[in-house]
């Protein structure tokens, strides 16, 4: 680490020994890092020092560190994935913060995402929603020639935009209602806009919404906080599409 580029931050981190233990904030002062170090690497540096001191390292989720797997979470200084827009926590760099700043780091807060330990929450609820209908159940075969099944550019783009949802849960974390409708609507949309997904559209939307409700997520009140905080900029127009699909499917019952 080049000494001329060092910055120091105070990390106020939520520590919780287990799902049923009482948690609280612990402030780690003067954590040395650099502006070009990522936020997760800074946590790695802090963890190294904690291990060296014989203390328990901070538990947090991470995997690809490229912004595509959806594993990282963290509510940093009042925002899911931190203050950067359109980026995940792993794409957040320390140059976003001031030297000497105290950074508050919390886990996602939602009844459906219980804290497992420290900053790690259980996002299995999203897996369950996907398992309820977030797939095409028949064999679509190999990749078709581009002109075999005509799909408009608009629909293809919308489906692709919806499919960029990485299922990180930032929408739930940002929502004052703990609603998962942005996630579910993105998953419904990515299929319903394409011919292969259209076939099971009614069954899918009913199953996924029913599972979402069963798991205790809240009801959308269109505050648009989810859309503003989503690292993939998923639009709430997906929610309108999901509502439309759901209501039409129910009317046909």
């Amino acid at each position: 680490m080049a000494t001329d580029n060092i910055m120091k931050v105070n990390l106020k981190v939520w520590r919780q020994a287990g799902p049923k233990e009482k948690g609280g904030f612990v402030t780690y002062e003067n954590v040395e890092t650099t502006p070009d170090t990522s936020f997760l690497e800074t946590l790695d540096i802090l963890n190294e020092s904690l291990i060296e001191k014989g203390e328990e390292p901070i538990v947090f989720d991470h995997d690809c560190r490229e912004g595509i797997c959806g594993m990282c979470s963290l509510y940093i200084n009042g925002h899911p994935h931190g203050p950067a827009t359109g980026a995940t926590t792993c794409q957040l760099y320390m140059r976003r913060f001031k030297n000497g700043e105290t950074i508050t780091v919390e886990p996602w807060r939602s009844a459906a995402f219980p804290v497992l330990k420290d900053l790690m929450v259980n996002r299995n609820a999203f897996d369950q929603i996907q398992q309820a209908g977030g797939y095409v159940s028949f064999n679509c075969g190999g990749a078709q020639d581009a002109n075999a099944i005509p799909i408009s550019k608009v629909d293809a783009d919308e489906a692709m935009d919806s499919a960029t949802c990485i299922g990180c849960g930032a929408c739930v974390a940002a929502c004052k209602n703990g609603s998962a409708m942005l996630f579910v609507s993105a998953k419904v949309s990515q299929f319903v806009l394409l011919p292969q997904g259209r076939v099971e559209a009614a069954k899918r939307v009913k199953a996924m919404v029913a599972k979402m409700d069963e798991l205790g997520f809240g009801n959308c009140t269109n505050t648009r906080a989810c859309e503003a905080e989503c690292p993939k900029r998923i639009s709430i127009s997906n929610i309108a599409r999901m509502n439309r699909e759901f209501l039409c499917a129910k009317l046909k019952d």
């Binding site: 948690g23 904030f25 509510y75 200084n77 009042g78 925002h79 203050p83 508050t104 919390e106 807060r109 939602s110 009844a111 459906a112 995402f113 804290v115 940002a174 004052k176 209602n177 703990g178 609603s179 205790g216 997520f217 809240g218 009801n219 009140t221 906080a225 503003a228 905080e229």
Partner: peptide, 17 residues
């Protein structure tokens, strides 16, 4: 329902987008 879904713990630091 929404209050319940939000959970018992609240964020210590929140900034409205």
């Amino acid at each position: 329902q929404n209050r319940k879904a939000r959970g018992a713990e609240r964020y210590a630091y929140q900034e409205k987008p």
